[in-house]
């Protein structure tokens, strides 16, 4: 199961956790598992967030495994 990191507002829609494990062989599957677990607010956030795998931008088709780190990055506000 890939390790999933949740940043900023993504934590708020996942019960406050900054890390979680979600099942799936692709990014799309992982996000679907998150939506099933955390509900429509998580699914809605996914539409506005980027997903990076192992620190690099990825897309829905990107394959992921147990050793991978999937990060959910909502819109940013640095600087």
């Amino acid at each position: 199961m890939p390790r999933v990191l949740l940043f900023g507002p993504a934590r708020d829609v996942a019960g406050g956790a900054s890390r979680t494990d979600l099942a799936g062989a692709t990014v799309k599957d992982v996000l679907a598992d998150g939506s099933a677990r955390y509900g429509p607010v998580f699914a809605d956030l996914c539409h506005h967030a980027q997903v990076w795998v192992n620190g690099e931008p990825a897309d829905e088709a990107t394959a992921v495994g147990d050793a991978d780190e999937v990060a959910l990055l909502p819109p940013v506000s640095g600087g």
């Binding site: 940043f7 900023g8 507002p9 909502p74 940013v76 506000s77 640095g78 600087g79």
Partner: peptide, 12 residues
């Protein structure tokens, strides 16, 4: 500074 604000994964 403009590009940092646009491209760096940071949240406030």
């Amino acid at each position: 500074i403009d590009t940092v604000k646009a491209t760096v994964p940071l949240w406030k």
